[in-house]
Design a protein around this nucleic acid. Structure first.
Length: 424
RNA sequence: GUGGCCGUAGCUCAAGUGGUUAGAGCGCCAGGUUGUGGUCCUGGAGGCUGGGGGUUCAAGUCCCCUCGGUCACCCCA
């Protein structure tokens, strides 16, 4: 039996798992603060959901999906992203849900690519979606929420890139314009970019080989070719961000691979993460065409998907503090046969006071139990032995520096919640 | 999915051009210390050198396959 987990997955164990848990918790807090509601959608969906929304030109669909057949012969796929699921769920329950529907989710996504630092086959996302509003203010709020989350985690070395990619009214004309523009340069594009030119010409801009060539940089940008409503919307987003003081970098070459994306696209790129393959912390945009792609009523939407594993890597890269470990506050040590019951009562009391506490399940020497406490990561040890039983006290020991106090058993909880009083 | 580099103890790494029983530091366990963890001293355990096949008198070392890691791509969070 191979004891290592499947390729591209990882075990999150104490301290690092606590850090991830902290990111989840912060996601809940921030989203709730903005009035967003938590949703959970299935970990797997009908394969068709992702095929219809991501389209057949997307690599996610063509080669990165975990697709399998269940015992009923259905083709199912582990979710490679959650936006399609949330919109699907919204469409089936739209009558019962508020409008706009501000929702958020946290959880694992699955893509079968070749693993690399910051890109694993199972990865964790915090995503938000505002469904049912077209106005620029929704885009602004999504961005403000994302910026706030990153900043409050302690990150500072990231830049918000912003663009608008138009909609079904102005993008087709621009596409043609772009194809015409690139036509004379066809021979100077590499093979891969020529494929993009025919499939999705906007994506020539983020080509690694040709992206920096002068004729690519000089190519007409979508920003110059937005239709009136799209231009107005984009201006509204920019003004909204300016009003609240969120800095951004206009990046006319920031595009999206999928057709249902409209208007705003944005992403936060970290300069602390070395690999530019995995330096996007959070990517989002407007997807006014998604609901129709699913066969539902036309329904606008905007949201982002943040890569929490990458956020954790960025925190480490920037030397920022990680979310705290959640080790027990107090480890209760019982010495001698008579102390067992007393220590169990003490543990129960502490827990009832909301103080995390644990102890040994079996009788062991003091030394061994202190070591257990140390290993458990406890901040304090409460020693219950013959001397303590005789006097109705407990010996409290602070592990970080070994300072000890003898306190009445009834006061232990109070002492453990005190931050002062341990100096002498 | 494509290509480069790498894989020795739990971790970080040693083992001239193939050559007896593969080493060290840290960590782990035990004792010193039967009421004090982390520090200190002493001792101990721990490896079919990622796995499989091949070349050779002889493979950690060379070749092939495979698995895994990593980097660059494709693409994306």
């Amino acid at each position: 039996m191979e004891l290592v987990p499947p390729r591209g997955t990882q075990d999150l164990l104490p301290d690092r798992a606590d850090a991830m848990y902290g990111l989840y918790e912060a996601a809940h807090k921030t989203a709730e603060l903005f009035g967003f509601r938590y949703v959970e959608t299935p970990m797997f969906e009908h394969t068709e959901l992702f095929v219809r929304t991501s389209g057949d030109t997307s690599d996610v669909v063509t080669k990165e999906m975990y697709t399998f057949e269940d015992k009923g012969g259905r083709s199912l796929t582990l979710r490679p992203e959650s936006t399609a699921s949330v919109v699907r769920a919204y469409l089936t329950h739209a009558q019962e849900l508020p409008n706009p529907f501000r929702s958020y989710y946290v959880g694992s996504e699955f893509r079968h690519g070749r693993p690399q630092a910051g890109r694993t086959r199972e990865f964790r996302q915090f995503g938000i979606e505002v469904i049912g509003v077209e106005g620029a203010q929704a885009d602004v709020e999504v961005i403000v929420l994302g910026e706030r989350y990153l900043r409050e985690r302690g990150l500072s070395q990231h830049v918000l890139h912003l663009n608008s990619i138009g909609d079904e009214n102005c993008r087709p004309a621009y596409r043609e314009r772009l194809v015409d523009y690139f036509d004379p340069y066809r021979d100077r594009l590499d093979e891969d970019c020529r494929t993009r030119l025919s499939k999705n010409p906007l994506r020539v801009f983020d080509c690694k080989v040709d992206g920096g060539k002068d004729f690519v940089l000089a190519a007409p940008t979508i920003a110059e070719h937005l239709c009136e409503p799209c231009a107005t919307h984009f201006a509204g987003v920019r003004k909204g961000l300016d009003d609240v003081g969120v800095p951004y970098l206009l990046n006319p070459r920031l595009v999206r691979g999928l057709d249902y994306y409209t208007r705003s696209t944005f992403e936060w790129v970290s300069s602390a993460l070395a690999s530019d393959q995995a330096s996007t912390l959070n990517a989002g945009g407007r997807y006014d065409g998604l609901a129709e792609a699913l066969g539902g009523q036309p329904t606008p939407g905007v949201g982002f998907a943040m890569g929490l594993d990458r956020v954790l890597l960025a925190l480490e890269a920037e030397g920022a503090a990680l979310p705290s470990p959640r080790a027990p506050r107090c480890f209760v040590v019982a010495i001698g046969p008579d102390a067992g019951a007393a220590s169990r009562y003490l543990i129960a009391d502490l827990r009832n006071e909301g103080i995390s506490a644990a102890g040994s399940y079996e009788e062991r020497p003091l030394k061994a139990q202190l070591k257990m406490a140390d290993r458990a990561g406890a901040a304090f040890v409460a020693i219950v032995g013959e001397q303590e039983l005789a006097t109705g006290t407990v010996t409290l020991r602070r592990l970080v520096d070994g300072v000890q106090k003898s306190v009445p058993t009834a006061d232990v909880a109070t002492w453990l919640t005190k931050l002062d009083g341990w100096v002498d």
